[in-house]
Amino acid sequence: MSGQLAEAVIDLSAIGDNVRTVAGVARTGLMAVVKADAFGHGAVPVARAAVRAGATWLGVTSSTEALALRTAGIRAPILSWLHRPDEDFTHLITARVDIAVSTLTHLHSVAGAATRLGTPATVQLKADIGLSRNGANGDDWPELVAWARKYEAEGSVRVRGVWSHLTNAEEPGSRSVTGQVSTFREALRIARDACLTPEVVHLANSAAALGVPEARYDLCRIGLALYGVDPFDPTGPGRFGLRPAMTLRTSVVNVKRVPAGSGVSYGPEHVTDRATTLALIPLGYADGLSRTTEDRASVWLGGRRCPIVGRIAMDQCVVDAGDLPVALGDEVVVFGPGAAGAGGGAPGAAAAEPTVGEWARWAGTNPHEVMTGIGARVARVHLHLER
């Protein structure tokens, strides 16, 4: 690990395989969502791998993220969707980044920047169809559409897309999803009746790309699936054959044999019930190991799963290795594809390292939070990197 205490190893070939897998199901263009540093995987290398595999768009949250991709020389179409209304949009316009617009205030600001620059801004209008976050709904949507058409006629704005986001695409066939798709169709009708002619219409996220055909339109936006996590079965391999791209690993930095009745970590809230071997690993909640996983989480050590015991500290935590012959420097896999121990493992033990979906379940959250929570001091190592 070259002096690093821990590393997140990113397999970029898995990113490419996941793009091709989803494309094979959805049969649409794909927008690879690389916001939040590509869910902690590294935005620039992941973006390059996704585009190389056939992704036609990239999606980000902010101007900073979009411009970082452009600075890295990435020329694929980019949509940036969350902005302050008083932001200086000239940088995005100059960089040929599509700007998502959800309010009249934002639209006026974008059009004003384009007028000052003398270059039309390319925008994508977002409708709120039930998520109650960003996007225009009710009477705001027809007004936003009308102003967008006015600015388009004047030459300050080009409306390239209309889009929205489902609330619960993980429940395909539910009345809620059906209703949201219907609401989106109506929003699209209103836009077209106002003489807007969007070239890209998109609604589907990863779950909808894989399970809601009526939501697919021209593009599907893939985030979780891009990183190899099945949105319908995040703790297992799932039925689509997605490949988890991130493996979080470290090594043992201290080993001690302790008798029964030994307290472990702060409190102590854990006391050993037998003589056992404790292995210290240099990862803690500052690195993304949530304290809510205490008494549930395990890691892969010595060919089997071993539980984390005691409180997880900021920089370290303790693993109960039982009677395993653990030594300083032994590799520990916190989570990975779930295949490390296939065909092996101790009798009665899980035959593979934990997955990010399992860590999410232990923490009472989703895989997105686990992956994006891996701290900056954990080195990112990219396999199959191409420039």
Rank of each mutant, 00 (worst) to 15 (best):
E171G: 13
L12A: 04
T250L: 00
F232P: 09
T276D: 05
E353K: 05
M371A: 14
A127G: 09
F184L: 04
T122R: 12
D193Q: 14
A204H: 09
A194C: 12
H83E: 05
S174V: 02
D230W: 00
L328F: 13
W81P: 12
A352M: 09
T28A: 07
A363L: 01
A146Y: 00
R239S: 12
R175C: 10
A297H: 02
S80D: 04
H382L: 03
T178H: 15
G179M: 05
L385I: 10
R221G: 14
G130H: 08
G54V: 02
H368M: 10
T28R: 01
R377W: 00
M1G: 15
A32Y: 02
G364Y: 01
L144C: 09
G54W: 04
A297L: 03
L289Y: 10
R239W: 01
G344C: 13
V34Y: 08
T105M: 03
V19K: 11
H368V: 14
L301H: 13
A113E: 01
G288N: 07
T61Q: 11
A50S: 11
G336A: 06
A207L: 05
A327N: 15
A260Y: 07
V145Q: 08
L383C: 03
N168T: 15
A286H: 14
T64W: 01
R133N: 11
G375T: 08
A187D: 05
P367N: 05
V333W: 00
L210E: 03
V229C: 02
R304F: 06
K35T: 06
R304E: 12
L289F: 12
V319A: 14
A6R: 07
